[in-house]
Design a protein around this nucleic acid. Structure first.
Lengths: 354, 354
DNA sequence: ATGAAAGCGCTAACAT
DNA sequence: ATGTTAGCGCTTTCAT
């Protein structure tokens, strides 16, 4: 009678002892081969591999983790939404983690609040991950968890203390600044900003980049409009902004919000880019195919994920040596059709007196 | 000196024996409390929980898995792309898995080919998952892996044999049929189809639904145009289709391809929806805010994920009892602005003689 | 270059 | 309702 329900027909799964028996070596030697340890003759190595293949042997990660204290797995706390940004980052992280020979554990937080994050991290710790990645969308607030493994924060400053905290930037500040400067260089008197929700680091960086670009030119800083990343919130903001004739350029903190914004402008009879220019943020490829094609800045998700995981794995595997510093990611502005010089200066000033 | 690198300052992590000692009970009793087993007095339960809290005790999943043979984890083989569909499904799966009290292991396959899938599944088996989810994007071909746990296929027929295979539909066939029928009811003589890449189940279902709608009305079935899900491939297909004046309605197998398609049509001087109607597939919310707003069919990702995981967990926990059957998901057609009746009949026939 | 023995932290089966 | 004993499958010493 089979020991466990669910096992295929017949025998229980082979263990390393079975491989050892078939190969005519000790269990420890099998272990050595499987872990690519030195001091195994090529002949023995071959025999072990052969026996393993024959038996259809599969290593038991749980047993290995228990015995060695290392899991070769990395946990990621992601935001439970299906946006292009979140998803891209997750895909990049998965790839980088797998390439590093680690397994991935994912826990989503519905909303990025501290309590949700604490719970997610605790769950990951129980699962025995060797390192944790907290992905960009995280809100401010005290997160209280005891974490004794290295933690990588992507696109945000450390939100809690851990065995070791690392950060990798997605260059949001520089990207926001570049987006705003692009608009300013086009001749716009100022640039309005449709931000993400308050309290999010992702929002903050972008606001600051925008603000810095404005300050560098000494131009007036209009009040920030706040959205929630959704196209609907961009649309709502657009209806508001459209009624203000002084608005000729808007930098939106997300591509989808930008799309909603443009839609509202056009409905209100304001042409884009002739009357109002709009720049998005993310670099989602599909918006190159809408009218007008969306000018945006591309977030270097892949590069950030690769770089971040490199750092994290280093911290896991060689905690003593110093970390090779991460370079700032490149700033990539994608100019498409949603930006243009402002309407004639006189018309603009005339309207602004309103 | 600390035993393991990375542990916080001081003591090693507390184990269940420590909790037992502090609470003044046996290790097994601690185990009973932690697993919510019956036959524990309320008083003891309270004491154990208290001791655990005090010590900051965290269960060791690896040890539990090794001892019990069960991991309380589910693995998902996802496609390594950041599309709205894939990401939505993954988010839904993560949520459903967590709600069921399981952890999630994710392995992406860059391309959904059989070899990649086999590798992904093997990796998951080594990680000791109790069940596997193979998400929709999977290509045809023989996948040869030995799997002794239940496997759930989302939106595709079983691609390999396992301890037990389950399927949950996303209703792609019915959705494709509904999309095509919508166009036909508008009065279009026929409907062209921009499909996904050949070999993908996701493409196949949609082709068949489209074909069935056409056949039911006895209308001519034009040749299928093939894309690769990307907006660029939709654009390329659009340039081709735009030169054929008989084309007045296209059903695209994905929203992003539909967007590319529309862009190409407009560039070629064909208005949407006046000259050509386009229906997408997925239901991505942002395309309600482009011009014209995209008519589409909504894939019930959340419902499918919930339903699928319910089935899978049932198969894991009660392999004996029969599975409660899954109802077909609702068909949701979202009519927006990219569809309209065809141009006047006479103009159309005149052109068609070309 | 290889092996023997011990034990990782937990749960299972059987006590009581 | 609670405790005892014996492993789960692997890696770690430490021998050889």
């Amino acid at each position: 009678m089979p020991r466990v329900v669910g096992r295929g027909p017949g025998a229980p799964a082979p263990r390393s002892a079975d491989v050892a028996r078939v190969a005519g070596v000790s269990r420890k030697t099998v272990s050595r081969v499987l872990n690519n340890e030195p001091y195994v003759s090529d002949d023995v190595r071959r025999r072990v591999l052969e026996a393993a293949g024959e038996l259809g042997y599969r290593l038991n990660h749980a047993a290995r983790a228990l015995a060695s204290g290392r899991n070769r797995s990395i946990g990621v706390v992601a935001l439970g939404t299906a946006g292009y940004g979140t998803a891209s980052l997750l895909v990049g992280v998965e790839r980088a983690v797998r390439d590093a020979g680690y397994a991935l554990r994912v826990v989503n937080t519905v909303d990025g609040d501290p309590k949700g994050i604490a719970g997610a991290v605790t769950s990951l710790m129980e699962q025995g991950v060797d390192g944790v990645v907290v992905s960009e969308p995280i809100v401010e607030g005290e997160v209280s968890v005891r974490v004794d493994v290295p933690v990588l924060f992507v696109g945000a400053p450390p939100a809690f203390t851990a065995g070791q905290t690392l950060t990798v930037s997605v260059g949001a500040y520089a990207l926001a600044r570049a987006a705003t400067e692009h608009l300013l260089e086009l001749g716009h008197a100022t640039v309005h900003h449709l931000a993400g929700p308050q309290g999010w680091y992702a929002s903050k960086d972008r606001v600051e980049g925008w603000r810095a670009a404005l300050a560098a030119r000494g131009v007036h800083e209009p009040p920030v409009v706040e959205g929630d990343w959704s196209p609907a919130s961009g649309y709502a903001a657009g209806r508001e902004l459209a009624s203000d004739p002084s608005v000729t350029a808007v930098f939106a903190a997300g591509d989808e919000m930008a799309i909603g914004l443009i839609h509202a402008f056009r409905e209100a009879g304001r042409r884009v880019p002739e009357d109002i220019s709009v720049v998005g943020f993310d670099g989602s490829p599909v918006f190159a195919y809408v009218s007008p094609p969306l000018t945006t800045v591309r977030q270097p998700f892949d590069a950030a994920a690769r770089e971040g995981i490199r750092l994290l794995v280093h911290a896991i595997e060689e905690p003593e040596t110093e970390l090779p510093a991460a370079g700032e990611p490149p700033v990539e502005l994608v100019v498409r059709g949603s930006t243009a010089p402002p309407p004639s200066h006189q018309g603009q000033t005339a309207l602004r007196t309103t």
